[in-house]
Design a protein around this nucleic acid. Structure first.
Lengths: 130, 130
DNA sequence: TTGTTGTATGATGCATTGTTCATATATTAT
DNA sequence: ATAATATATGAACAATGCATCATACAACAA
């Protein structure tokens, strides 16, 4: 994953005495598997780039070919292709070839739901802070 | 933001002739403002780190102090504090001080909703691919 | 075949990001 | 006051990620 995340799994990473060991253990037990968590992180990472987010928002309106996407988001064709590739690899979009052109759609309803919720939260906290 | 994203706003970033200009214009008009999009990206960026995701998942069970979080996610207290800071700054968590200890909770229902949806999608596509 | 158009991809360079280390602040105890 | 505990923060380094460039691939036209 990242910086060889330590995960030394010794419980002494925190020198604090006041910690509730029962709570810690109960919650540790309920965590997702690292495999699943990595996958979820990867999904969010895809959504965390403004350019890709723009692409996804554009695709909410329907199917688009690569070049239309490039025109909409104002990025080079190459850059867009790279982004679409990673979106494909994690099943956020689906592809359909028609002649020379390749059309992309959002893979399922999860994707726009994610963006919608995040947009709500962002709108609500955009004025209140900073 | 990032690499001084070009945004040259000339429409010739894409040399393709077959693009439908009406579609491109209509969709471009419906895009969020850059300000809002940046905020959404930033939210997703916070969710895109496995360590932070672990923290958030832990907090879904309820309020926790910094050191309990550190014990659960197996990270140094410093690292956890840094993560909590960024989560605070974007209103993903709320803080409550009680003596020397500081307790954190998820800020609102949006956060766990986001993770839940992403988890669903990840589960569904985890076996089908790769 | 060759040429042209639409898309994909590897490599490179720069920017961003997370962890660690050292230290600072805050609260309570003695 | 000093000491101890809980958390926060700045700087530095290592690792990752994105845009660009060049080029490759795929489909169609002449």
């Amino acid at each position: 994953m990242h910086h060889t995340t330590t995960e030394t799994d010794g419980a002494d990473l925190c020198a604090v005495k006041f910690t509730r060991p029962d709570v810690v253990e109960r919650i540790r037990a309920r965590l997702e598997t690292p495999r699943l968590r990595l996958r979820i992180s990867a999904m969010f990472k895809l959504l965390s780039d403004p350019a890709r987010l723009k692409i996804i928002t554009a695709l909410e309106e329907g199917e688009l070919c690569v070049c239309e996407i490039a025109a909409i988001v104002q990025l080079s064709q190459s850059s867009v292709s790279h982004h679409l590739r990673s979106l494909r690899e994690l099943n956020l979009v689906r592809v359909r070839r028609q002649g020379k052109m390749v059309f992309y759609v959002l893979a399922d309803v999860h994707i726009s739901a994610l963006v919608a919720i995040a947009r709500d939260h962002a709108r609500e906290t955009l004025n209140t802070n900073v």
